[in-house]
Write a protein that binds this DNA or RNA. Structure first.
Lengths: 164, 164
DNA sequence: GATACAACTTAAAGTCACTTGAGGTTCAAG
DNA sequence: CTTGAACCTCAAGTGACTTTAAGTTGTATC
């Protein structure tokens, strides 16, 4: 039974949709505050931590950098920040999210069409004659040719560093 | 003038929409074959290389992993392989994109509500009463206090290279 | 032919945001 | 009191490049 009230790190991880090592990492880089550690050495969390971490996890799921998330989180939690600045930064983050939504919808459309063409024209034949696949190799960019990453726009369409 | 016909690495990079270091990296991991090197030490490419690299770059734009791309490339070159496998890879990628779309819409809603609350409750001035979404960060602002030395050199205090 | 300079070469280290591993400690159940 | 899951720290590994350092080649101009 839990006499010391509060969530252990595993419970927090489950509730926020992440993992215990990730939580420790966030604490290490200062993205999460150091939690209380009653009795033994183990960290204990509360529902506020669940909400904060869930917010962070969502931002990370959409490729906001740790620095961006740090900015957003501290902005949301700082009562002394100028309200107008809070609103402005929130709005610009919203603009970025909306731009990403547009990009992602376009990517979904392209992929859906690709799979659809596959289903229709490639009924089990050899893949060397897979026309949708071959089409990818023909010249002319599907989207504007990728720029030098150093000049990448504010809103990259895809992260090149995501893992799966 | 180019007596030795063939593209140099920079020209290939421009035509395929990527960079020279990336091409060398792909060669190193065996995603691209080692090209001819007539005369001096420099790599020379032809139009087949442009097509192959364009294909690879486009797959990466679709956020396929390097392993997925490797699979697709060998599928494309193997006359005995099944077109259905190509479709499966595309479909699983589509599933991932659709899941991301759902999450991104949820994030957009959170941010839009935040900005909306800002606009309504914070009518200018240094508002100590501005606490929209306070429940997300009730335990106070997260300060990038003492961090792991590894990360310290990267981000001194403000984001220098705001990559995203 | 000399010279300047961009574009090329390699190898190695750096980057981001975790993830995994090794080796040990704590805690609730049986 | 023992078992075993869950916790702890610290270090090293991962993916997909990117950057850096230090040297070489190719071409255009004088």
């Amino acid at each position: 039974m839990n006499i010391e009230s509060g969530l252990k790190i595993g419970a927090l991880a489950r509730l926020a949709g992440t993992t215990a090592p990730t939580i420790r990492y966030y604490e290490q880089i200062g993205l999460l505050p150091r939690p209380v550690r009653p009795a033994g050495h183990q960290r204990r969390y509360d529902t506020a931590d669940v909400q904060r971490l869930t917010f962070i996890r969502r931002c990370r799921d959409f490729d906001f950098s740790i620095d961006h998330v740090r900015e957003l989180v501290s902005l949301l939690g700082d009562p002394s920040s100028d309200c107008k600045a809070v609103q402005d930064i929130g709005q610009s983050q919203l603009d970025i999210v909306r731009a990403k939504l547009l990009e992602l919808r376009s990517l979904e459309k392209m992929l859906a069409e690709f799979v659809d063409r596959c289903a229709k024209s490639c009924t089990g034949g050899p893949s060397s004659r897979c026309r949708p696949l071959a089409k990818l190799a023909r010249s002319g960019p599907v989207k504007p040719t990728r720029r030098d990453p150093r000049h990448e726009s504010l809103v990259p369409s895809q992260s090149r560093h995501t893992k799966r």
